[in-house]
Design a protein around this nucleic acid. Sequence first.
DNA 1: CACATTCATAACTCTATGGTTATGGGATGA
DNA 2: TCATCCCATAACCATAGAGTTATGAATGTG
Lengths: 108, 108
Amino acid sequence: MTQYSPDLLFRALADPTRRTLFERLCLDGEQTVGALTAGAGISQPAVSKHLGVLKQAGLVLDRHEGRQTHYSAQQRALAPLVDWTGRMNRFWEARFDDLEDLLKRMDQ
Amino acid sequence: MTQYSPDLLFRALADPTRRTLFERLCLDGEQTVGALTAGAGISQPAVSKHLGVLKQAGLVLDRHEGRQTHYSAQQRALAPLVDWTGRMNRFWEARFDDLEDLLKRMDQ
DNA sequence: CACATTCATAACTCTATGGTTATGGGATGA
DNA sequence: TCATCCCATAACCATAGAGTTATGAATGTG
């Protein structure tokens, strides 16, 4: 059962290794665990665990084909993160707008 | 010396307590450590440490006034985070465009 | 069937970190 | 001056988590 909270997303993406894995999947598309392990600089079980965390956060999908597992990025999962940053900036804009309004009213 | 890497940002925002502090500063504006401690559910030193991490990531600014320190959100610091998510989505769009091109060419 | 390959899980270690209490330093007020 | 207040730092503890090796389950291959 995958959740899609900002908390899980931030925590999943906080680790640089995991972020790199996710980036590779975004840039180069679907890949097997073996391919991801090559060049990751860590053991295969470590990669599997990271992929598990990413999957739990909804950031990747896995597809089983024979004895290998293909992982792919689920970029839509970034939506809550974009929303969150948007909310934080909206308030900045809102306060900026308020300031503008204030200045306009003072100008009259 | 504050840095503005995505890594520091993700790590700083991965902790829910820190994220809540940052949100409060975004929503309610500048506040003292005492005000932030009230309602945080943790001790004052813990809040100070969190604020230190946020400051290190460039997410907040501090202003000393008498014996109290006022913290405020620096929303601009979220830019690298927005860029990063944008890059991840751009590649999705790019591949989507490629697919569209392919379909158009197949249609001819 | 026997063996190899691919991945996931288990069990464990070690470090990073989020929390605490104790303390100190600078500013304020009596 | 002396006591108080606000905050930061130090020292410490406990847990989370990122890595490891060992192993097993499932699949492919001789």
